Simulated scan of single mutants.
Amino acid sequence: MTAPIETTGSAAEAKPEAVLAGAKLSQIDGRSLGRIAWNRFKRDKVAMAGGIVVILLVLLAVLAKPIESIFGLDPNAFNQELINPELLAPKGALGGISWDHPLGVEPQTGRDILARIIEGSWVSLLVAAGSTLLSVVIGVIMGVVAGFYGGWVDAGISRLMDTFLAFPLLLFAISISASLQNGAFGLSGLPLRIGVLVFVIGFFSWPYIGRIVRAQTLSLREREFVEAARSLGARGPFILFRELLPNLMAPILVYSTLLIPTNILFEASLSFLGVGISPPQSSWGGMLTTAVDLYQVDPMFMIIPGMAIFITVLAFNLLGDGLRDALDPRSK
């Protein structure tokens, strides 16, 4: 009877030459957190589509004036020859759509709708971006300070947040905008309107992001890297700006992308009520105000600015949802 052949672990091991050859064939590359988040984001096709639409909208808003000059678009030009004098409606079918006016013209006035949509894009995005930046700056500072120091500082800032959240923001914005129509702070006209909207929307919206940042700071201040910084003698400002704030960038970025569409809707609501951007400056909310009286004459005049607001808000929301999933370390 033959004895069983014993195999040792060394015999089953690969030779060093084979190991080195395999290591040369496939190198293991380290990936940063940003690259990991980008790979996750690319897999979300819906978020990618939203991001592409947002980029196109931003380019449209930034290049609005050059586009109008290149193609000869005038948002305030009255084309009365394109209006039926008896019906006060655009001549032809589908609201006067033609090669010269791809989206048609306004009833009664004959102003080009495409030119007014392009003109209104930079107004809406400027107000939304400015108010979002203001609210993010105030909210982040207040939230980080309240969450890190705690105690009476946290209690005072939290009660201040509750006070701001109790304000009837829409009524307050209407009253301020209506009272500053003639001029204030050395400004008048469109700059004053934009400045008032940015201040009102941004200054009274910071508690929303402030609460989120405060909650994240309360969690992060107990982490090991904060304790290690304290043990090395780091003081409060250093820990706030060098340790906590970089770890808060992901939720701040995500909430900012979700706050912009909210501010776009708020600006459109104020313009719709007549206390936002005033004529003759074009705005999407102002176009909807005019369309209310002319809906029976030309329904497309209401649908087009409404779709512009809908697409913009939807694109920012999809982008924000995708960024939230991509920057979440627990997602797969």
Rank of each mutant, 00 (worst) to 15 (best):
M142Q: 03
A308N: 04
Q281H: 12
A268G: 13
E267K: 05
F266R: 02
P207S: 15
F78V: 07
R221S: 05
G110R: 00
T2Q: 02
P191V: 15
A89S: 13
F272T: 01
F241G: 06
L82M: 07
G130W: 09
S179D: 04
V254I: 05
G51V: 14
G92D: 05
A166L: 08
Q281K: 09
G151E: 09
L33F: 08
A23Y: 03
I83F: 03
L240N: 00
S175E: 04
L87F: 07
L265A: 07
R111N: 00
Q296V: 05
S282Y: 01
G104R: 02
A14E: 08
E222C: 04
N79H: 15
I5G: 00
L88Q: 14
L134E: 07
L248W: 02
S283P: 03
F204C: 13
P107T: 01
Y295P: 00
D293Q: 11
L273P: 07
A11M: 09
S69R: 11
L63R: 09
V297A: 06
D325A: 06
P191F: 14
D100I: 00
T8W: 08
F203Q: 08
G233S: 10
V140F: 02
S278P: 00
P261H: 00
M48S: 10
I209K: 10
L190E: 12
L170F: 15
D321R: 06
D154C: 04
L25F: 06
K15Q: 07
L126E: 11
S282N: 01
A77R: 13
P207K: 15
G95L: 04
F238K: 12
A155T: 13
A178S: 14
L60A: 13
R111W: 00
F310D: 02
F148Q: 04
I36D: 11
I138F: 08
I194Q: 14
V46T: 12
G274Y: 03
I83M: 02
E68S: 09
L187M: 15
M300F: 06
E224V: 09
A77V: 03
V19L: 15
V127W: 11
D328T: 11
R31V: 13
I194T: 12
A61W: 11
F272N: 02
G30Q: 07
F78M: 14
P107K: 03
A291V: 05
V153L: 15
A173P: 06
P66L: 07
G274L: 03
R230F: 04
L323Q: 05
A21E: 15
V136Q: 05
V54K: 13
G150K: 08
A89M: 13
F199K: 10
I36L: 15
F148E: 02
L323N: 05
P237L: 05
I209P: 09
G156V: 14
I239A: 03
S271A: 10
Q296R: 12
L253S: 02
T217K: 08
V254H: 00
G210D: 11
L20R: 11
R223L: 11
I55V: 15
I309G: 03
T290C: 00
T217A: 07
S175M: 14
D325P: 08
G189C: 11
A3Y: 06
V153Y: 04
S175Y: 10
R116V: 01
R193P: 08
F301A: 11
F204V: 15
R214C: 12
